[in-house]
């Protein structure tokens, strides 16, 4: 309060920095508390170390996997499957969603498919894709694309259908042709919605990649966890969980950054 009433910029900036530091400390506190509870529980022998291995053993395994490069091989494989499937879903899903929003035959054809597909447990198609596309990368990538495409289509449709008609009218009266209205007006106007769809779909893609690896094997983060489970190596399983969480967080953060860059014009960007 004193910093504000003094009117000087420096104390105000310092107060803001302090508040920000406090917020970050609180954010970390939750994670640290969870880890402390974990370590405490296993040290006090409250749970059997096989069910919940001590944290320090898991950390040691993480360090080992990172330094040996094994982590990067597995994470790379999982990311390759997740990102390729996600990219295919985005490249097909966004145009299809926009197409549906324009109405006509596309709407009648695709709307029921999306309505059925969106709430369906997509992973149940894994046996089918294994049958069709084999046991290696292709079936996993198809699985990822299939799991994430419905969200992307639905978001692109809602975003395009919700574009203010006066924007298109303004462009038309300024001399824009239909193709220009589509690429220069409709697409950027729907972009916030489309990006939201992609942001929701990316974790789905990662989850699906890891889940198909756990179900089918074939290394990657999920495959490694499947392997550890088979050898009753609970330290390996928990190390895998932490690795998966870390990769997921990285991907989501990258996506948020990309959104902030693409939508610098958007009112939401002002709320830093």
């Amino acid at each position: 309060m004193t910093a504000l009433s003094s009117g000087a910029a420096v104390p105000l900036a310092r107060a803001l920095t302090l508040r920000r530091a406090r917020d970050i400390a609180l954010q970390w506190a939750a994670a640290v508390l969870l880890l402390a509870a974990w370590e405490g529980a296993s040290r006090a022998h409250l749970v059997h170390p096989f069910l919940l291995p001590p944290l320090d053993e898991v950390v040691a395994r993480l360090v080992e996997e990172v330094t040996s490069g094994l982590f990067f091989v597995n994470a790379g494989l999982t990311l390759y499957r997740a990102v390729t499937g996600f990219a295919i879903a985005a490249l097909i899903g966004v145009p299809v969603g926009i197409f549906i929003a324009r109405g006509g035959i596309a709407k009648w054809f695709f709307d029921p498919l999306v309505s059925i597909g969106l709430p369906m447990p997509k992973i149940s198609f894994l046996p089918v894709f294994m049958l069709w596309f084999g046991l290696f990368d292709l079936s996993k990538i198809v699985m990822v694309a299939f799991a994430s495409i419905f969200t992307i289509v639905a978001a692109a449709e809602a975003g395009t259908a919700g574009v203010d008609k006066f924007l298109a009218w303004s462009a038309r009266s300024l001399g824009a042709r239909p193709a220009e209205i589509f690429f220069q007006i409709m697409l950027p106007a729907a972009l916030p919605h489309i990006l939201t769809g992609l942001q929701v779909a990316l974790p789905i893609a990662l989850i699906t990649a890891v889940a198909s690896e756990i179900l089918m094997g074939g290394t990657g983060l999920g495959g490694a966890m499947l392997q550890s489970g088979r050898y009753a190596d609970s330290v390996g399983v928990f190390a895998g969980i932490i690795e998966t969480a870390a990769v997921g967080m990285l991907a989501v953060t990258a996506m948020t950054r990309a959104r902030r860059r693409l939508l610098a014009w958007h009112a939401e960007s002002d709320r830093a």
Partner: peptide, 10 residues
């Protein structure tokens, strides 16, 4: 228009 209808990304 009443609600300006400026292109918000420009």
């Amino acid at each position: 228009f009443q609600n300006f209808s400026l292109f918000p990304w420009k």
